[in-house]
Write a protein that binds this DNA or RNA. Structure first.
Length: 314
DNA sequence: TGCCAGGCGGGGT
DNA sequence: ACCCCGCATGGC
């Protein structure tokens, strides 16, 4: 287990970003407790940040040479410099997302590593929201990668951890998806897929490279564009969202993607993610009921959803 | 019990 | 370019 030392403390200028929302949504209790979040700044070294909802952070690493870089990366992960005014301008007149966008304006997507975004996508394949996030939770808990800071926080497994003990993926309930996760781990380890090399390329190019991994299709690759690259021009559209688009905008399902992109433009991928939050990632049937009754913001009745996950799975 | 769920690839036409 | 099926698993 790595022992980490505190490299730097400070407070970021969070502007109008609501770090409470940003840290809470789509997160687990071991990485956010309502006051303070743990952000993995660099999975490999590793570098982690503790950050309070007020923006004050401390960054831990094995050695402290690159502290300014770490702070910049922390800000990028939290999206505090990201200008979403274009998205909100469109959302303010959108029948599906205007309610969410006016009440959750301070939220930003929280980025993950490329590796972890792909694992997230694979766990969502052909499964419900709850099943997928439960799998992901099991993976983190079973690999139990820890670093030595006062309370030994848990980190996601690295590709190498998964390759050392691939069978734990099955124990985690990923079923046939485990082979895909292993292939992703190999592609990352061999350098065949590399974040820094991809980051400067276009979304279409990144998608096509990621799709070379068997088991990674459009949906998973595009979810990575959103979560790992903060590129939103190619939206992840699964059968859930496709159906919702068809109903809300009264188009044929085959026209759903075109409709979505022409409506949201460079914000399409963000709009996809926001839709899942606004509808509490309910299964299709219930999501459509929610739309019919106009309940287009998260409802906290204690049941599992992107906004309540952190209070349930700890 | 049997069916479905926020995909995907492979095999058919 | 389609259509269709199977796929591990867990929830209902």
């Amino acid at each position: 287990m790595s022992s980490l030392v505190c490299c730097c403390r400070g407070c970021i200028d969070r502007g109008d970003v609501d770090l409470g929302l940003t840290l809470a949504i789509y997160n687990y209790g071991f990485w956010f407790n309502g006051e303070r979040g743990i952000v993995v700044v660099d999975e490999d070294k590793p570098v982690i940040a503790f950050i309070d909802v007020n923006g004050c952070y401390s960054i831990y690493a094995r050695e402290c040479s690159g502290c300014n870089t770490y702070v910049e990366r922390l800000e990028w992960i939290l999206g505090v410099r990201e200008d979403l005014s274009g998205f909100y301008r469109l959302a303010s007149s959108d029948p599906l997302l205007k309610m969410f966008s006016s009440r959750y304006r301070g939220w930003r997507p929280r980025s993950t590593s490329l590796w972890w975004s792909l694992v997230i996508g694979v766990c969502q394949q052909n499964a419900s929201f709850w099943q997928g996030w439960r799998m992901l939770y099991n993976i983190v808990k079973l690999y139990n990668r820890r670093v030595r800071v006062d309370d030994e926080p848990i980190l996601p497994p690295r590709p190498v951890d998964v390759l050392e003990n691939p069978h734990l993926l099955v124990t985690a309930g990923t079923g046939y998806r485990s082979d895909t996760i292993v292939r992703i781990a190999k592609a990352m380890e061999s350098g065949e897929v590399n974040y820094d090399r991809l980051a400067s390329r276009s979304s279409i190019e990144i998608e096509s490279v990621l799709k070379r991994i068997k088991g990674v299709g459009s949906y998973t690759a595009r979810l990575s564009l959103v979560l790992a690259f903060r590129k939103y021009d190619l939206p992840p559209i699964d059968r859930w969202l496709k159906k919702i688009i068809a109903v809300v905008y009264r188009v044929r399902e085959e026209d759903a993607e075109r409709t979505w992109i022409s409506r949201w433009g460079r914000w399409s991928g963000l709009a996809s993610l926001v839709t899942t939050i606004a509808l509490d990632a309910k299964p299709l049937r219930k999501a459509l009921e929610r739309i019919r009754s106009g309940k287009l913001v998260p409802i906290d009745n204690g049941s599992p959803s992107p906004t309540t996950l952190w209070r349930i799975l700890k």
